[in-house]
Design a binder for these strands. Structure first.
Lengths: 191, 191
DNA sequence: TGCAGCATGTAACCTGTTACATGATTAG
DNA sequence: CTAATCATGTAACAGGTTACATGCTGCA
């Protein structure tokens, strides 16, 4: 129960994956290597220390499988405290900083919400995500109007790319919100 | 000329900004605080050490302004070696890893190309960016076809968001390529 | 006079990267 | 037999975060 931070995206990704099924360190590495979560590093130098930190914080618990064989492996599972901590992280309000600087974290949080948060919380997350984006887009538009004339072609184009990404994510959030809302009830609920 | 890495996005952003005009550490902080480059941290604990590393590597040179007053400030400017190093970084080929895990770096690189790379190099960068994205999208589509049925609603939606982002950037790259090509000649050339 | 902004820095800490190391098992 | 894959780790290093510290300047 040593106090650690465990606030990184990698820790969040590990907790989220373990909320679906127990995995070993190597199992996690394979997920990061072979699936669309490949934006995370699969280096053992990141994963094994992260697992030990999470275990020291009491959020995950490793149990030895194949104990008497010559190739044991540690399968890690979420503890109740770990599940609670994960729910807590997923439930955090969407801040302006999240929108402007941690969009990846927001999407990562969203991807694990199924089965951990009730549907109305997920819908609320999507609403606050898109309204946060729209608020930021207004600031961004004003900034661009003000500064763009002084910028080079490339800098201006890069800015536009950023704007478009935000607009696209806002549209995605709305669409996903509506799709989820229309789903038949009684799904994605836990606790 | 001590050997350092200086491979971080922050170092790249600093070199790029100094290629436009000399700035002090505080000036850099203001840029990161008040413009759309706000995704970078403006904390002095990041900027001042980075500047000293770049100076130790001979890529920037600080000169004291207002020397005899009570409030001197260090204005940093690119050295010829710094300009060469920046051009080198901007000229690197677009790798698969860049596309899958460092898209932000690629956009940052692009935003500084004006005036440092000849137009045809910039056009080539955009072409290799979009073809790299399209190659990755094929892999991603296959992965999604294979895995999506096993994923939860939220995980699937997050994946789709990722796909759409890549598709959007590819479209942006094509459009920007065409716009740049149509521009009247004799612009954006150096060296 | 006091506060906001200018301007630069340091120290403790956390996290990730790269590279290396070790050894077992299984498929060809 | 040997190469790939399973499986877990360590050590050195780089870089960023947060928080603190310092002192000047111009304005109300």
């Amino acid at each position: 129960m040593t106090k650690r931070n465990n606030e990184s995206d990698l820790s969040l990704a590990i907790l989220g994956l373990l909320s679906i099924q127990p995995l070993s360190g190597y199992g996690l590495r394979k997920v990061f290597l072979t699936t669309a979560m490949g934006n995370f590093s699969a280096s053992p130098g990141a994963i094994y220390p992260a697992l030990r930190n999470l275990e020291a914080a009491g959020l995950v618990k490793g149990t030895v499988e194949n104990a008497n064989t010559l190739r044991p492996r540690m399968a890690y599972a979420l503890t109740p405290a770990g599940r609670a901590a994960l729910k807590g992280t997923l439930s955090r309000p969407v801040t302006r900083e999240d929108v402007t600087r941690r969009m990846d974290t927001l999407i990562l949080r969203f991807s694990f919400m199924d089965g951990l948060l009730p549907k109305d919380r997920i819908l609320e997350f999507l609403r606050s995500l898109w309204s946060g984006i729209e608020a930021y887009l207004e600031v961004l538009d004003a900034e661009i109007l003000r500064d763009a004339p002084r910028y080079s072609f490339c800098a201006r184009a890069a800015l536009e790319q950023g704007q478009e990404t935000f607009r696209m994510i806002a549209r995605w959030a709305k669409r996903t919100h509506n799709r989820l809302q229309e789903e038949h009830a009684g799904k994605g609920e836990t606790k």
